[in-house]
Simulated scan of single mutants.
Amino acid sequence: MNQCTSVASLPPPKYAVALADPGQSPETGHVLCELGEGHEEAHAAMLWDKGGRPGSAVWARWGAGPARLTPLPWCAVLDPRDADAACGLFAGHPAPHDWEIADPTDEAITRELARQHPHLFR
């Protein structure tokens, strides 16, 4: 399944704007939904993880309104191809798991790099 293509803009936090040098204000950033296409729940993008503890990952979640930051626990389902790797999405996410989601842009870049540099891709 392909990755969802929803994008959200995240304005810089007010404290970052207040601390910035005059004329050097931080810019709005953009995040891409990491869930599989066609999901019915809010979109989601992981921003950072504070150490792998339950609820330590901070996700941006958005729908019709502005994005909000939410700490969520990690999905504990193990990748059947690698018993040491768990799903990289949050617990309770809509199906499918991250190993079943393809980023078409990343795949296109990889194909082009493999064409240009076949010795790097075996």
Rank of each mutant, 00 (worst) to 15 (best):
M1R: 14
M1T: 13
N2W: 05
Q3K: 15
Q3R: 15
Q3P: 01
Q3F: 02
Q3V: 05
C4H: 03
T5G: 10
S6T: 07
A8P: 08
A8K: 05
P11F: 00
K14P: 04
K14W: 00
Y15E: 14
A18D: 15
A18Y: 02
A18V: 03
A18G: 04
D21Y: 06
P22S: 02
P22W: 04
G23A: 10
G23T: 04
S25N: 09
P26L: 08
G29Q: 11
H30W: 09
H30A: 13
L32D: 00
C33K: 00
C33D: 00
E34Y: 01
L35R: 02
H39S: 08
H43V: 05
K50W: 05
K50A: 14
G52H: 11
R53N: 07
R53S: 12
P54G: 11
S56P: 02
V58R: 03
A60Y: 00
A60F: 00
R61L: 15
A64H: 10
L69W: 04
L72I: 05
C75M: 11
A83P: 13
D84S: 14
A91R: 14
H93F: 04
P94K: 12
D98T: 14
W99Y: 10
E100P: 00
A102D: 13
A102M: 08
A102N: 09
A102S: 12
D103P: 03
D103T: 01
P104F: 06
D106N: 04
A108E: 15
R111W: 03
L113I: 11
Q116L: 15
Q116D: 10
Q116K: 15
